[in-house]
């Protein structure tokens, strides 16, 4: 499910519809992948500490913590705070 969003305002949960932003909590960078056993210390440090942190469009985990409790992936601009798309997070 996707929800286009073109202007700032409530975030749109794919399950609950438009809801106040205060109901949602930021949940981290979905691009982080756990390296295998036997990886180098540098790779492990990268997994633990290095995040995409883009200036502009970002893919982010969010959780509708005060609503349905679902984990979501939002495409959000980190400069304008515009939320462009919210989809269900898949494992």
């Amino acid at each position: 499910m996707t929800n286009p969003m073109i202007k700032p305002g409530p975030m749109i949960c794919p399950f609950c519809g438009p809801r106040d932003a205060s109901e949602f909590r930021y949940g981290g960078d979905p691009s982080v992948a756990r390296p295998g056993f036997g990886c180098s210390d540098a790779d492990w440090a990268g997994y633990l500490y290095v995040r995409e942190n883009p200036r502009g469009l970002a893919r982010e985990y969010w959780v509708h913590s005060q609503g349905c409790g679902q984990w979501l992936v939002a495409e959000r601009d980190t400069v304008t705070h515009l939320v462009l798309r919210v989809t269900e997070a898949t494992p």
């Binding site: 932003a21 205060s22 909590r25 930021y26 995040r51 942190n53 200036r55 502009g56 970002a58 982010e60 980190t78 400069v79 304008t80 705070h81």
Partner: peptide
């Protein structure tokens, strides 16, 4: 503020 941001403005909440 609990969200990554480069907005350089504070959120009213």
């Amino acid at each position: 503020e609990p969200v990554p941001s480069y907005a350089r403005r504070g959120d009213l909440a």
